[in-house]
Every structure is written in structure tokens, then in C-alpha cells.
Design a protein around this nucleic acid. Structure first.
Lengths: 146, 146
DNA sequence: TATTGTTATACTCTATAACTATA
DNA sequence: TATAGTTATAGAGTATAACAATA
């Protein structure tokens, strides 16, 4: 019974954290003149080019939805599509020079905001949350890998 | 340096958790024939009626955006607007009888999915994550209260 | 005057279905 | 046949600005 209450608290906390992160992306995005979705896309691409199929999986988007999102950001000159050298059907999405700047700024601001929240925690807690969240994500991956 | 890496891991983990929760709402919503946003709204309302201003704060939405969201769900007969007895400008949004069913099902499914992830954690970790997340959220509230 | 909520408008976001090109 | 990505379409979601009604 008390165990159940514990679990409910986790679900609630996860949902609230989600709204917090969404808000951070919205606010940082607005500061950079990006929609939340565009901000997320640019953040992902700061690690390097990603193929459309991988992107749609990472962002939980149908391929056609991603096409539109990439179109709009490409129209603004922030990303470019490059043909895959091995598979002529596939494309990689990469940041342009201007996109690098916007992406880096967005990425840094988002991380700074999220890290600032964690900074408030005792160092031991910080490690534990990170580890536990990673554990949680791994649990999900195992579930969906079925 | 290693501390910084730790913090970065938290930010990344929070972002990935966010995408996971978004996905859960999308999948559960689809199962209930609701959009992710409608599913979230109905989940919130399972605790009882909420005023428009409070809802817009809880969902991070401009008032006008919320008006549209509530309109669409009201058109489907899942919620109804009721005048505030004290303030004639204000309205409360409440689930209809049909909305109760949809909201309860959505709420239960979402919580079950999220709790299932946590179940995989050792009980001690579970408590710690919940506590730490709550701490994180409190840190944010303190920040925005300025 | 300030607050609550709506309307009007113009986008962006998104999924579904049908399609093209390549593997 | 299967996969990578696009196009067409329709609707949902969202913010901004201007507004109405009430406090």
C-alpha cells in the first residue's frame, strides 16, 4: 500500500519533470528564436549529423512529420541535407555554420538550466539520480526491444 | 571536471526521460483516441475541476491556446465548463461522465507504464529517485518564484 | 486599472495515406 | 519486396494581439 504510494509519487514526479524540461526548451528556444521542436532538433545535431530515420526515432516523429520540421529549419538556413555516401536513398541532416551557433547556444542554455536544478542537490544525490534515471531509461529500452 | 561530466549526464538523462514520458502520453492517448495534449489535460482533471488560469500554468500554455484545447475536448463531450461561483469572469473545467471514463483509463495506463519502469529499480533506489526528483522540482519552483 | 477568458489570425506541428527512388 | 524519404491533405496545437466582461 505504501509501496504503491511510492510508485505513484515517481510517476507524478516524472510527469512534472517532463513539463519542466518542455518549458526549458520553450523558453530557451524563444530566446534563440526557435520553436521548442526546432530547438530540440538543433540540440541533437550538435553531436554531429544524423540520418532522417534515426532522427525520427530519437524525436518520436513519423517520417513525414520530420520531413516538415527539417524543411522549415533548412529554409531558415540552420541545417542542410547531405546524401549518404553508401545508400543513395538516405540523407544526413547536418548543422550549417549558422546552425552550429544556434545549436551550441541552445544546447548550452538548456544544459545550464537543467544542471542548475541539479546543482541544488547534495552531490551524492546527484549521482544517484543520474544513475537511477539511466537505469530507468535502460529498463524502457529493454521493454521496447521485445 | 568529472563533476561536470556528472551534471551533463543528468541533463541528458532528464531530456531522454522527457521524450519517454511524451511517448507514453502519445501511445496511451492513441489507445484512448486522444491526442497527447488531450490525454494530459484529462489526466490532470481526474483530480477534480481546475480553473482555466491554473490549467494554463500547469500545462505551460498561453490562455488562448488552452481555450482551443478545451474547446476541442468539450466538443467531443469529454469536459464541460462551469462558472466559478465567486468570480463571474472565471470558469472551471470538469470531466463529464464520459470524460471520467476516458480520463481514468488514460491516467491509469500512463501511471502503470511509468511505474513499470520504476519497478525495475531496487526499492531503495526508487525512493531516492522520487525524493531527488521532488527536490529538483522544488528547486525549480524556488527559482521561478523570484 | 487589473484580471479572466475569448476571438482572430497566422503559423508550426503532426499523423495518415499514397507515392518515388533505391536497395 | 523492403526501406528511405517525400508529397498531399487535414486537423491539432500554439503564440500574439486585440477584445469583452468582470473585479
Amino acid at each position: 500500500m505504501s509501496e504503491n504510494a511510492q510508485e505513484t509519487r515517481i510517476a507524478d514526479a516524472l510527469i512534472q519533470v517532463t513539463r519542466l524540461v518542455e518549458r526549458v526548451f520553450a523558453e530557451v528556444g524563444r530566446h534563440c528564436e526557435l520553436t521548442p521542436q526546432q530547438a530540440q532538433l538543433l540540440c541533437l545535431l550538435t553531436d554531429g549529423p544524423i540520418g532522417m530515420t534515426d532522427l525520427s526515432r530519437l524525436l518520436n516523429l513519423e517520417k513525414s512529420s520530420l520531413t516538415g520540421l527539417v524543411d522549415r529549419v533548412e529554409r531558415r538556413g540552420l541545417v542542410a541535407r547531405h546524401r549518404d555516401t553508401c545508400d543513395r536513398r538516405a540523407w544526413h541532416v547536418a548543422l550549417t555554420e549558422e546552425g552550429q551557433r544556434a545549436g551550441a547556444e541552445t544546447h548550452d542554455l538548456v544544459n545550464a538550466r537543467l544542471e542548475a536544478l541539479a546543482e541544488d542537490l547534495p552531490a551524492s544525490d546527484r549521482d544517484q539520480v543520474a544513475a537511477a534515471l539511466v537505469h530507468l531509461l535502460a529498463a524502457h529500452r529493454r521493454t521496447t526491444a521485445d
